[in-house]
């Protein structure tokens, strides 16, 4: 009996030593240094503008917004007239425009100065209720500097329903900013003017400290309740439906989130910038 136990123990020890030796053996045999770096095929990197547009689309997607798109070459109608910016109106000066030599019939063509034409195009095609987010490239005829480019990315939001108010605009955007910057924030509205919204506001976001006090306010967007003329231009009965629209610069959020000092660096294809961003 005693002997038997001894025997068993002996076998067990032998087995453990054997198993141990076996693994030692392979690593040693192959001379593997587990502290050497691993090898994987090199992955490419995503552009920060792509990352930001993805974040925007994802967050609004969770809030029920569909991604909508439109062309970059637009007609005067969609870029201006349908948005309540008539010809010979000083409001046109708010957008410095690249015009094309070509025309569409009699209508002048241009490079869209904002993503707002997507609002009209979508309203023409779809019945309310509407929730869309439209990221895309826009163009401005202006001198370039660290904060201005002739081409950049914007995102437009539009929400139309029976009872969609400015307080809802504030609620939606606050939620968006908190998700985007992954921290508690504050938001405030200031009176402004855009021909396609009434009332119109500028939106500032506030970075808060631990106590919830705002350290710094930053102007980030324009927004407001969709002007009845714009709803009508999109074929929607303004006496039955109302809602808000907002628009902001994707590049501006890239600059804010990642601290890139010069927006012009975003469009040179410089991998020294891009490779600092994610590979997924």
């Amino acid at each position: 009996m005693k002997n038997n136990k001894k025997q068993r123990l002996k076998y067990l020890c032998f087995f453990i030593v054997f198993a141990y030796n076996k693994t030692m053996h392979i690593r040693e045999k192959l001379g593997i240094d587990v502290t050497l770096p691993g090898k994987a095929p090199e992955r490419g990197h995503l552009h920060p503008v792509t990352l930001m547009m993805r974040d925007i689309a994802r967050i609004f997607g969770h809030m029920g917004f569909t991604i909508a798109e439109g062309p970059e070459i637009e007609s005067e109608h969609y870029n201006f007239d349908a948005l309540n910016i008539p010809k010979d109106h000083p409001a046109r000066d708010m957008w410095d425009t690249f015009w094309l030599k070509d025309k569409l019939g009699l209508e002048r063509l241009l490079l869209r100065t904002h993503t707002s034409p997507v609002q009209i195009r979508y309203m023409e095609d779809c019945e309310p209720p509407i929730r869309i987010i439209a990221p895309g490239k826009v163009y401005r005829y202006e001198a370039t500097d660290a904060t201005h480019e002739t081409q950049f990315y914007q995102f437009e939001g539009l929400m139309i329903g029976k009872d969609v108010s400015m307080a809802n605009l504030k609620g939606m955007l606050l939620s968006f900013f908190e998700q985007l910057f992954e921290r508690p924030m504050q938001i405030r509205f200031r009176p402004s003017y855009f021909p396609f919204t009434e009332p119109s506001v500028e939106i500032d976001i506030g970075w808060t400290d631990e106590k919830g006090k705002v350290v710094k306010w930053i102007e980030v967007m324009g927004a407001g309740q969709v002007h009845p003329k714009v709803l009508e231009a999109g074929g929607i009965d303004a006496s039955k439906w109302q809602g808000f629209a907002f628009g902001g610069g994707v590049d501006r959020f890239v600059v804010l989130k990642y601290g890139i000092p010069d927006v012009r660096q975003l469009y040179t294809g410089d991998l020294r910038l891009i490779k600092q961003f994610g590979t997924v």
Binding site: G61, M63, G64, F65, T66, I67, P129, R131, M159, G161, K162, D163, V164, S165, M166, A167, N168, K170, G171, M172, L173, L174, S175, I187, R188, F189, R190, P191, V201
Partner: peptide, 18 residues
């Protein structure tokens, strides 16, 4: 003053995005 607006989410039904 727009500070009087309380941030609230819309009461509208959410439609699944396309």
């Amino acid at each position: 003053g727009y500070d009087v607006l309380v941030p609230i989410m819309p009461s509208e039904q959410v439609i699944s995005p396309v």
